[in-house]
Amino acid sequence: MKFPTVAICEVNTKNELGEDVEAYVTSLGKGIREEYNFDVEAHISFILFPSQYTHGTIKARCLRYEDCDNCAKCPKTGYRKLVETFGANCTEIFEQCWLAGKEFDCCQYFLPLYTPYGTCFMLNSLQNNHPGSQHWMSLELDRSQKPELQVVTSRSIQVSLLNEEDIPNTALKGISLVIQEGQDRALHFHSELMANDVDVRDIPIEARNCRFPDETLPWSLYHAYSFSTCISDCTRIFQEEVCKCNSYLLNPYADARFVDCGLAGYSCLEASSMIIPDVKKVMRFNSSRLQCSCLPSCAEGDIRTVYESVLRFNPKGQEANITLVMPVWPTDQYRRQVLRSRLDGVVSIGGILGLFLGASILSGIEFIYYFTLRAANTALMARRAQQLKQT
């Protein structure tokens, strides 16, 4: 069996951002009546942990301080730089990792990626990795190995189980679990893979109603196609059409062609309910450049939650421990096959001709040959014979 892709995203469950963020907010100024501006700190928390956004908070936390000269104000620009400065890196989050009881280097295989959920560390994702690289881990297990992945972190996290081409997306419901510091949790899941026949690629995309991961859309910013990345791309285009900028999270590789939103841009997105939009709204959106029509991935399998539990909880604990287990080995596999290939069509045509006309495709070829190549060859030979007689 093959263990699915895993995404680890940091979450803020204690509303604590650290001394460096507090020093930064203090350097910006004060509150209206307080020495410390907690509203600006909350706005920076939204920048670092966008999944915890609540509609209306940007206006409530930031606009009230615009006319106050001595007050700390929400940063106007440079949100991507703030995440790079104050966001946690891999070594600050991960402590230990095991797969099938064998320990491995977490930061060699969990690679960072900007996603709609925030900064996540992805294990074997086609969006920031590829098979054969030094960071691609073999997740193929045999029956002598226990299908279990255990991760210990020093911060609260959200764990998501994904297909290789997918990303965590706040607009889509997926298999995920939040583990707070001091918790030891287990998630039991079941996974069934998808296998595609070779002939499936010969079928037009409109007919097979899915796209392979390497069939990326021309306007996509992601390295592989999936339904979740298509929704992210459509959201980015929607934001750009409405507010002339987009969230830095939807531009994961910092493509210079697209402008990251600042405070004014996020205020516009909030007024249009486009920071965490409804999927149906995004799917109905028709841009002047394209129509958003997202198909599923041809390679996506089915991952389902079986059981989740809290094994242990220590309120004073400093570690978060998650164990991902597949309790039963998969016995089924989805298969997408072509019922009638091009060769089948040729065979069917030949059979119909043979049944109703007593002929086959070969007979048709012979018919064409008899009245074209053979007729021309016969005429040419007759002309040569006539010339020989005259000489």
Rank of each mutant, 00 (worst) to 15 (best):
T5N: 12
A7T: 03
K14R: 15
L17G: 10
D20K: 10
V21H: 11
G29E: 04
I32G: 11
H43Y: 14
S45I: 02
P50M: 09
S51H: 12
Q52D: 12
T54N: 14
H55V: 12
T57E: 11
K59L: 04
C62D: 04
C62Y: 09
R64C: 05
C68N: 07
C68E: 06
C71T: 03
A72Q: 03
A72Y: 08
K73A: 08
K76Y: 05
K76A: 13
G78D: 03
Y79D: 01
Y79K: 06
Y79L: 03
K81D: 13
V83H: 10
E84P: 04
T85M: 14
I93M: 10
Q96Y: 07
Q108V: 01
Y109A: 03
P112A: 14
L113N: 04
T119W: 10
N128L: 06
N128S: 08
N129E: 09
Q134E: 07
Q134S: 09
M137G: 00
L139T: 12
E140W: 13
R143A: 14
Q145T: 02
E148R: 15
Q158R: 14
S160I: 01
N163S: 11
E164K: 13
E165D: 11
D166T: 05
I167V: 12
T170A: 15
G174P: 02
V178C: 09
D197R: 07
R201P: 00
R201S: 06
P204D: 07
A207K: 15
N209W: 04
E215D: 10
T216K: 12
P218H: 09
L221T: 02
Q239G: 08
Q239Y: 08
E240C: 07
C245W: 04
P252I: 04
P252Q: 05
Y253F: 15
A256D: 12
D260T: 05
D260K: 13
G265R: 09
C268Q: 03
L269M: 14
L269K: 11
I275H: 04
P277E: 07
K280W: 11
F285E: 00
S288Y: 14
L295D: 02
C298Q: 06
A299R: 10
E300I: 09
D302R: 15
V310C: 07
R312E: 06
R312W: 05
N314A: 12
T331S: 14
R336S: 13
R336L: 13
R336Y: 11
Q337K: 11
V338A: 10
S341Y: 08
L343E: 10
L343Q: 13
L343N: 08
V347M: 05
S348Q: 06
L355Y: 09
G358I: 00
I361C: 08
L362H: 02
G364F: 00
Y369S: 03
F371S: 02
L373E: 06
N377Q: 14
A379D: 03
R384Q: 02
R384S: 01
Q387S: 01
L388Q: 08
K389C: 00
Q390V: 02
